[in-house]
Structures are given as structure tokens and as C-alpha cells.
Design a protein around this nucleic acid. Structure first.
Lengths: 168, 168
DNA sequence: TATTGTTATACTCTATAACTATA
DNA sequence: TATAGTTATAGAGTATAACAATA
């Protein structure tokens, strides 16, 4: 613990490729060398795949896939937003939003009302709102598992960094 | 900075769903509420997608896809390992390892030597070793970008947590 | 019986291109 | 001209099922 404190008040010595490499070579597993163990991108990817599988399983009871759930939750939080708005926020392209929104509408979870002649205002139906609440509860339970073992400061660091990877 | 220190030596107050939710609601963007902004799994996923796209672009000059590069690097670090060994280390199933190894062999990057009658010892050819070194250099440059803005202690926290998400 | 490798196939998410219609 | 929505299609990674051959 003292180690962390000392470094945190230091001058922020950056991770260098050489350092990462050193850590990588030192990590072995079942007799094999794992040259990617210290690789941030690799661990990010593996963690993401694992997380997605777990979340998909947790959401199975709702009949929603992970992406569908994310769209439903954002529509639920932003009644009246357009399909493009939702897509921009989630990083989903128009071409991929169309079938997503179409599926949710077919299941009676959202409704589309013409605004513009070319824009549709999206909002959840009663059934959609109820399912969104269920999905949100499931997601929050899943979140608790994902952040297990992290104290609040560490979680803030991780979350801020992940967010930063998209922006910069 | 002092904030971090104080919390780190505290009793490790855990993140709770309620706290995450609070942070989520407070985050807006272009007029829309983003109920997923404080969601760890969501940020993990978005960051992973962004990272994969960047790495794929960086590896383009090698003619390797990201997964192919990871396989080549692990073979290069473990000459003589079997296809199953490599797959287990990387979390790639046998069924998916077959075409991956087949492609690398067809390109003359790896060689397969029968060991067992059922196992093949994999090793990089000279061309494969050279390409692995190029891929490694590209990966390390990419890593530097991914860890930009993180000091050493923070990077250690993030890396350890990502790794922990697979184990527990 | 358990393991290695293989083939075939499907699913999820993301990407591009081309088109229509509207502002 | 730019935007909203749509369709079709492709790519990358992962998943399951079934099979042959070997240990």
C-alpha cells in the first residue's frame, strides 16, 4: 500500500514499452511463456470478451442481446430522441441501428413516431419500460461483480482511463 | 492527488451499484442522458472495440489480423508448443485454432512437425520470426498509446484488475 | 475414455456501399 | 448539399456439434 502512495505522489513516471515487455517476459503459465500477459490491449480484449459473455448470459432471461439492451436503456433514458441520436451516443452506425430499432419495435418494446418526415422520435412502450428496468437491475448486479475488489479510487482511475481511450 | 492517497489508505470502500448509478445519471452528452457512462462493462467494451480497430490498422502493414498476430507471437515465444497449448493460453478454441494455424502455415510463417501422431509442434520459420518481431514492435508502440496518461501505479492497478476479471 | 486436430456452421457485433427521401 | 433511415453484404472473432485418429 505504501508503494502505491509513494508512486502516486511521484512525478508520474510513465509506463514505457520496455517496462511492459519486462513484465511480460516474467509471466509464465502452465510451462508456457505468455508474451502478452503485460500487454494492456490484450488484457483489455480478454476482459471485454469475458464480460460480454457473462452479461449476455445474465440478460438471457430478458430475451435481449447486450447491444439491444444498451439501445433500450438509452431510449428509455431519452424519450423522444431519434435513432441517429441513440446511435451516435452508443457508437452504433445508422446502418446497424435500423435492424436494432426494428427488432425492438417488432417486440413491442419501443414505438416510433414521425417527427420530421425523415426523423422518428423513439420512446419505450410500457412493456419496453418494464423490460428496461429489469435489464437495468441485471446490469447493476453484473456491474457489482465487475468492480469487485476495486476500491472507489481505483475504480475511478480505471473508469476514467477506459473512457479516455475513446476520446484521445 | 491527496484525495487518492487518503482513499487508498482508507478501508477500501467498495463501489456499489447505487454509486455507479449516481455517477451515470450525472453524465450527459450533446443533450442526451447517458445511463451507461458510469458503467464499467460498457466502458470496457467501448474501449476494447476502439483499441482493436487501432491495433488492426497498425498491424495492416504486416498482413496479420489481430488474432493471427497474437498466435504468431505466442508461437514465437514458445517454440515446440502444440496447437492446443497455444489455444489454451490465448483462450482460442481448438476449432478456431485450426484455420488460424493453417493460414500461418500457408503463408510460410510457421512450421508444424508431428510429435505424437496427433500433436504437432509449432515453431516460427525465419520469415515468421522476422514478422513476429515486426508485429511485436508495432504492438509495443500501440501499447505506449494505450497507457498514455497513466502513471506506473495506476497502470498496475488497471492491468491487475483486467487480468482478475478473467480469473475470478 | 480422454485428447488432438479438423470441418462445417452459426451467432454477435461492427463495417462499407448504395439507395431513397427529406431538410 | 447534408441528414435520416434503409437494405444488402462483408468482415472479424467467437461458439457449438460432430467426426477421425491417436494416446
Amino acid at each position: 500500500m505504501l508503494y502505491f502512495i509513494a508512486v502516486l505522489i511521484g512525478d508520474g513516471n510513465r509506463i514505457t514499452p520496455a517496462i511492459m515487455q519486462e513484465e511480460a517476459e516474467a509471466t509464465a503459465q502452465q510451462g508456457l511463456r505468455d508474451p502478452l500477459a503485460g500487454n494492456f490491449g490484450y488484457q483489455l480484449r480478454r476482459a471485454s470478451v469475458q464480460m460480454m459473455a457473462g452479461l449476455a448470459a445474465a440478460l438471457e432471461e430478458t430475451g435481449l442481446r447486450v447491444t439491444e439492451a444498451s439501445v433500450l436503456l438509452v431510449i428509455h433514458a431519452n424519450p423522444g430522441a431519434s435513432q441517429s441520436d441513440i446511435g451516435r451516443l452508443l457508437g452504433i452506425r445508422r446502418a446497424n441501428m435500423a435492424p436494432l430499432a426494428g427488432t425492438l419495435e417488432l417486440r413491442g418494446l419501443i414505438a416510433r413516431a414521425p417527427v420530421d418526415g425523415r426523423s422518428h422520435a423513439l420512446r419505450t412502450t410500457d412493456a419496453g419500460a418494464a423490460l428496461a428496468e429489469r435489464a437495468k437491475a441485471i446490469t447493476l448486479r453484473h456491474e457489482a461483480r465487475l468492480t469487485e475488489g476495486l476500491d472507489r479510487a481505483a475504480a475511478a482511475i480505471v473508469l476514467a482511463h477506459l473512457r479516455g481511450l475513446r476520446a484521445g
